[in-house]
């Protein structure tokens, strides 16, 4: 099997954790990057204990200097980075009229600019190998709209546009760029929203309307990320794959 090094941002929890673990199980050496060092370390340890290859990396992806240091460290341990999962994101549920500049900036800086910074940091490796797999984790709300999440969905919509433009620009260099668009997934982020009473109706009523009437699991998203980053998926690029139980068809 070809050795591949993967970087997963937001790898310390939720979908990023599931994706880190799945890619490691499939033989990739993974850099688990998170702003929370302890959670990154915990995931890296779980992977190592299971016989996989992982290191924990701590960085705020909105900070180019921190990102470059983390990428340098991962490259030094496991070699050139061929797989990137831009998963890290922050949320802020808030009616549009009340969104403050600092919250708008925080979401755009992390969710969108962060992906820009991390992708630029790993790109030289992919260009040198003439092989790369980039997956941008967007969101169902970016495709359908969602109340009280205008800044979040705008940042995720930006990731979809970024996916398409990069796919065209980097395609001839052997790099595929796709987006996985999760629906309602059972993550710490979703649980905070559920527990905080941030949905207009109980969440059970929301998922009951889905063709597959359950909350998605982080591993559902991880499986899609694993597919897009596999050797076999080389002719697939610029796609936005909804992992949403049919919530939007």
């Amino acid at each position: 099997m070809t050795h591949r090094t993967a970087l997963i941002t937001g790898g310390g929890s939720g979908m990023g954790r599931a994706t880190s673990e799945r890619l490691a199980r499939e033989g990739k050496a993974v850099g688990v990057l998170d702003i929370n060092r302890k959670s990154a370390e915990a995931v890296a340890r779980i992977i190592s204990d299971a016989g996989g290859k992982a290191i924990a990396l701590c960085a705020d992806i909105a900070d180019r200097r921190q990102v470059e240091a983390a990428v340098h460290e991962l490259r030094g341990v496991f070699g050139a980075i061929g797989v990137l999962i831009n998963n890290a994101a922050v949320e802020n549920f808030c009616p549009f009229a009340e969104i403050r500049d600092e919250n708008w900036d925080r979401l755009i800086d992390t969710n969108l600019k962060g992906a820009f910074i991390v992708t630029q940091a790993v790109l030289p490796d992919m260009l040198a190998m003439r092989w790369g797999r980039i997956v941008n984790v967007s969101a169902l709300g970016a495709q359908t709209g969602a109340p009280n999440m205008a800044h979040y969905t705008a940042s995720k919509g930006g990731l979809i546009a970024l996916t398409r433009s990069l796919a065209i620009e980097l395609g001839p260099r052997g790099i595929t760029v796709n987006s996985v668009s999760p629906g309602f997934i059972d993550t710490p982020m979703s649980r905070r929203a559920i527990d905080g009473g941030l949905f207009p109706v109980p969440y059970e009523q929301i998922i009951a309307t889905y063709p597959i009437p359950r909350l998605g699991q982080p591993d559902d998203v991880a499986c899609a990320c694993a597919f897009f980053t596999s050797e076999e998926a080389g002719y697939i690029t610029a796609q936005v794959l909804g992992v949403n139980g049919g919530a939007a068809v």
């Binding site: 065209i168 559902d220 597919f227 002719y235 610029a238 794959l241 909804g242 049919g246």
Partner: peptide, 27 residues
Amino acid sequence: PLALFLASEASNYITGQTIGVDGGSTM
């Protein structure tokens, strides 16, 4: 490979979707 992914349990939460395997000619 995409047909295999969509047939397998790895895509258990994916339905109603349109996915291109066309080198990026459809977005």
